[in-house]
């Protein structure tokens, strides 16, 4: 990377655009970004060269159309390091809830002529299609996560991935336990940290938007939810939520749904 600045691309697939805002919401810091990297592709901000070869590609969104599949392969080929940002790119996103249903029936319920719209039967994570070098979790990812990952990559090291649950962040911040002290269903014990215990600090239970932590004891947590008055279906809804296709949450929610039918 001597002489020339490293090149950065920001690609979007099926998403709400909220993770790209981690950059667009940087305030004046955004103007310093061109000092570190050359932004060659970032359609929402203006630069538009999706085919350019880059050092770092940030990828937002999930794969949900045949065209997406081709495009992500092209992005992979052209990118030295590919970083996925957010729940859509890392786990298929909230919209992957449609994977559990009859997608064709849903399409024809919404569109008079569904045949005009070419989609896959699932919404899936980028890592299901191409090799991913680093994943940043969250719905959305925060500016802090994205900027520190960029800084680390520019310094030649891979960002260290979070493994601990939100509980650790609550303890660190001195937030009173939502689950034990307030008796409210909280996904903190099974959810990856990185948000700074956002929901417990805001007076409510975590709803799992950073996806599963390294170790997920879902039987124990869902038993606790039952004690707090949630039925199996309501517990299942908490796992089949933002990161519903992350394997640990997908399995936990499906197990609870099966149990509720027994």
């Amino acid at each position: 990377m001597n002489g020339q600045k490293p090149k950065l691309a920001v690609h979007k697939f099926s998403s709400c655009d909220g993770c790209q805002l981690a950059l667009l919401n940087l305030g004046e810091t955004l103007l310093q970004l061109p000092e570190l990297v050359e932004i060659v592709h970032f359609a929402e901000a203006g630069p538009n060269a999706p085919d350019a070869t880059v050092d770092i590609a940030l990828v937002e969104g999930s794969i949900s159309t045949p065209e997406d599949v081709h495009r992500i392969r092209m992005v992979r080929e052209k990118s030295r390091v590919l970083v996925t940002i957010g729940a859509c790119a890392t786990a298929g996103g909230l919209q992957a809830l449609a994977n559990f249903a009859d997608r064709d029936a849903w399409m024809s319920a919404i569109y008079p002529n569904p045949e005009l719209i070419d989609t896959l039967r699932t919404s899936s994570a980028i890592s299901g299609h191409v090799r991913v070098d680093c994943e940043l979790h969250g719905c959305p990812v925060s500016s802090r996560q994205v900027v520190s990952a960029l800084r680390e990559l520019l310094n030649g090291v891979m960002p260290r991935e979070e493994t601990q649950p939100v509980c650790v962040e609550c303890k660190r911040r001195g937030v009173i336990c939502t689950l034990v002290s307030k008796g409210e269903p909280c996904m903190g014990p099974v959810t990856l940290s990185g948000c700074g215990a956002l929901c417990p600090a805001a007076g409510r239970g975590c709803y799992g938007c950073y996806g599963p932590a390294e170790r997920v004891n879902d039987p124990s947590l869902s038993n606790r939810f039952v004690d707090l008055g949630l039925d199996r279906q309501a517990s299942a809804r908490r796992f089949h939520f933002i990161a519903n296709q992350a394997p640990a949450f997908k399995a936990a929610g499906s197990r609870l749904k099966d149990e509720s039918h027994e």
Binding site: S14, A98, M107, I110, T119, S123
Partner: peptide, 10 residues
């Protein structure tokens, strides 16, 4: 050409 995400259904 934002792919349909079917929010209203899920």
């Amino acid at each position: 050409f934002e792919p349909p995400r079917l929010f209203e259904k899920f």
